[in-house]
Nucleic acid binder design. Structure first.
Lengths: 124, 124
DNA sequence: CAGAATCCCAGCCGATACTG
DNA sequence: CAGTATCGGCTGGGATTCTG
């Protein structure tokens, strides 16, 4: 029997900081969420409205992950029906900036990528 | 800058260039793969050896996706057992650079993130 | 050596329903 | 309003087997 010893992850371990970042921003909603919050603090249902198509489950889950990683804060106001405001942290703001570099790369090179795909798909 | 109205595919449509990039680099092996190939062209089994823990399936699949997007090239040599060399393209090299910005962000802020996680996990 | 094909599981994610 | 809980589909990804 092939036992693996301590194969926890090699260069690919959870200790790899890059992996931590990609696990955060690689999911479906984080980038869009940061994109909204970087402009202003926003409440739960308002976020739900902005990110058309998100489910409460994923919104809550994504926000919780962001909060846990110190990228957004959650503040509760004791209004009549309680309201909760999410805001980006300074740390989150720096990440949003870095993610923006990615977005810029994408916009600059999307045509080239699209052409590569066509070439690839149109061959024997 | 043009306002996009188009609510059919949300802001989250496949047309979104940022989404295309995240779908490419967000997977488990792309970043590591680029990290190896950015140094020198490498053959299939050599890649498999370098990325300890990757399966042939995922390696082949990831390479194919990279090739389709024009980020790496695949060249076959008619040696005795045939050998195949994968190399990063200029386009792929620019992406690798951008990804590196992400890695730098991660390394600079991993401590702060870790502390945020501890604080989050250690509360009632 | 370089891969394709198959099986299977864990986790993401959406839809829906329920709570304070 | 702001969530949590549960069910189920889909897919990323690993292990294994087979081919040129």
């Amino acid at each position: 029997m092939a036992m693996k010893k301590e194969r926890k992850g090699d260069a690919y371990s959870a200790r790899c900081p890059a992996r931590l970042v990609l696990d955060q921003i690689g999911d479906k909603w984080t980038v869009l969420l940061l994109g909204v919050l970087v402009k202003q603090p926003t409440r739960f249902n308002e976020l739900k409205r902005r990110l058309q198509g998100v489910s409460q489950k994923m919104l809550g889950q994504t926000l919780k992950k962001l909060e846990r990683n110190g990228l957004v804060t959650r503040q509760v106001f004791a209004t009549v029906p309680v309201s909760v405001e999410y805001a980006i942290t300074p740390l989150g703001r720096t990440l949003a900036g870095t993610v923006d570099a990615l977005r810029q790369w994408a916009e600059q090179h999307i045509d080239e990528v699209a052409r590569a795909q066509e070439r690839f798909d149109a061959r024997p």
